[in-house]
Computed example of a mutant assay.
Amino acid sequence: MSVMDAYLGAAGQAVALLDTPEVATAWEQPSALAKMTVGGLAGHLAHQILSVSSALQVCANSALQESPPQEAPIPLLEHYARAAWIDAPLDGEVNAGIRAKSEGIASQGASWLAGLTRTALAEQRTKLAECSGDQAVFMPQTGWALCLDDFLVTRMLELAVHMDDLAVSVGLAVQELPEAAFDPVLVLLARLAARRHGHTALLRALTRVERAPAAINAI
């Protein structure tokens, strides 16, 4: 299965979660994430899908030569090495901005947001067929580009993490990702954890409980 198909499967699960009555009922309540309401968390989850629509528009314009060439994509791990939000403090400018944007996305309510993401995903199913996985996707918020496949892996990671956050926040069972989506997320998290803590620490965490490190977080 292609990365594109894997993303569509994960995004479909996210849309279904956003459309649950449990999320709508708890909209104004605190979420499992500090300083974020359930609605704000839902907005952040929805943003992972909506951002793909913007990326696909860039791909379509590039294919039609309607936009100037973008810079060469950087490797996926380099993207995370440069990311300003990793290790940023909860009350820092980066995280405060993320929370504010998420609340803004969610400001028109649960039903509206679920409908918006459902429509976006339906359009993406068509538009992804018009793009190539190696096309460059420039991300204005970062100032650099990824290839489309790598960009979709970053979205699947975000979807996996925040679907868990949202389900826990409203008391729903967490639905497992399809294997095609889980595998690239697992590989990426393992590589990020190994870079942060070292290969030995990761191996011990997975195989030697008596020597496992206290922390093995990837991000």
Rank of each mutant, 00 (worst) to 15 (best):
S2M: 03
V3E: 09
D5I: 06
D5T: 14
Y7D: 04
A14M: 08
A14R: 05
A16T: 08
L18I: 07
D19Q: 12
T20Q: 14
P21C: 02
E22W: 00
A24Q: 05
A24P: 00
A24T: 01
A24K: 03
T25H: 03
T25E: 13
P30G: 01
P30H: 04
S31L: 06
L33I: 13
M36L: 15
M36A: 06
T37M: 02
T37Y: 00
H44A: 00
A46T: 08
A46Y: 01
S51D: 13
V52C: 10
A55D: 04
L56A: 06
V58F: 01
A60P: 00
N61F: 05
N61S: 11
S62D: 04
A63D: 05
Q65V: 09
Q65C: 08
P68A: 12
Q70D: 11
Q70S: 15
E71V: 06
P75V: 09
H79E: 03
H79S: 14
A81W: 12
A83Y: 12
I86C: 02
I86K: 07
P89W: 05
L90D: 15
E93V: 09
V94M: 11
V94F: 09
V94Y: 02
N95K: 13
I98Q: 05
A100D: 11
A100L: 02
A100I: 05
E103T: 09
E103H: 14
S107D: 02
A110E: 07
A114S: 13
L116P: 00
T117C: 09
R118P: 01
R125K: 14
T126E: 13
L128V: 11
A129Y: 08
A129P: 00
E130A: 15
C131V: 13
S132D: 14
Q135A: 06
V137H: 08
V137Q: 01
Q141P: 05
G143R: 02
A145F: 07
L146V: 06
C147P: 05
C147G: 03
L148I: 08
D150S: 11
D150Q: 06
F151E: 01
F151A: 04
T154W: 10
M156E: 11
M156F: 07
M156V: 11
L157D: 15
A160R: 06
M163E: 14
L166H: 10
L166T: 12
A167K: 12
V168M: 12
V168D: 09
V170W: 07
A173L: 09
L177M: 15
E179F: 10
E179W: 10
F182H: 09
L186W: 03
L188C: 02
L189V: 15
A193E: 06
R196L: 03
R196P: 07
T200G: 08
L202K: 04
L203N: 06
R204Q: 15
A205Y: 14
A205M: 10
E210Y: 02
A212Y: 03
A214P: 04
A214Y: 07
A214G: 15
A214W: 10
I216Y: 08
A218S: 14
A218E: 07
I219S: 14
